[in-house]
Design a protein around this nucleic acid. Structure first.
Length: 107
DNA sequence: CGGTTGACTTTCC
DNA sequence: AGGAAAGCCAACC
């Protein structure tokens, strides 16, 4: 199964709890592709090209700088999730960064 | 089948 | 701290 790659990526992205964000590298590592951060981005781009999985919260995936590589479209969705950007348009990964296994610890 | 591209990351300056 | 270059892997032409 070659497309298992995309499936894995989408599955990991779906695992990101609401109100949190994860970097491409983080998702790639959890998806089994420690050096495939670009492929994660490519997989996200595929969502807007053919929409194989419209239920994937791709907007919760940002780059290592904590900024959106897509545009205001993602920023608007993240704002709806309760995530806010700083003056430079970047997210504080130390606050909104996704920590695996801590999704239930949200208080 | 080979070169280019891309919603990236990391390192160096 | 911010900017440029190299590295990496998969998809596309």
């Amino acid at each position: 199964m070659a497309d298992r790659l995309y499936e894995q990526i989408y599955e990991v992205v779906c695992r990101i709890p609401r109100g949190r964000v994860a970097t491409y590298g983080q998702v790639a590592r959890l998806a089994g592709i420690p050096k495939g951060a670009r492929q994660v981005g490519y997989a996200m781009a595929a969502l807007g090209r053919g929409m194989p999985r419209p239920d994937v919260p791709w907007h919760r995936v940002v780059n290592a700088k904590g900024a959106s590589s897509v545009g205001g479209d993602q920023i608007d969705r993240l704002g709806d999730e309760g995530i806010e950007f700083d003056e430079k348009g970047r997210i504080d990964l130390q606050t909104y960064g996704w920590r695996a296994g801590e999704q239930e610890m949200l208080l």
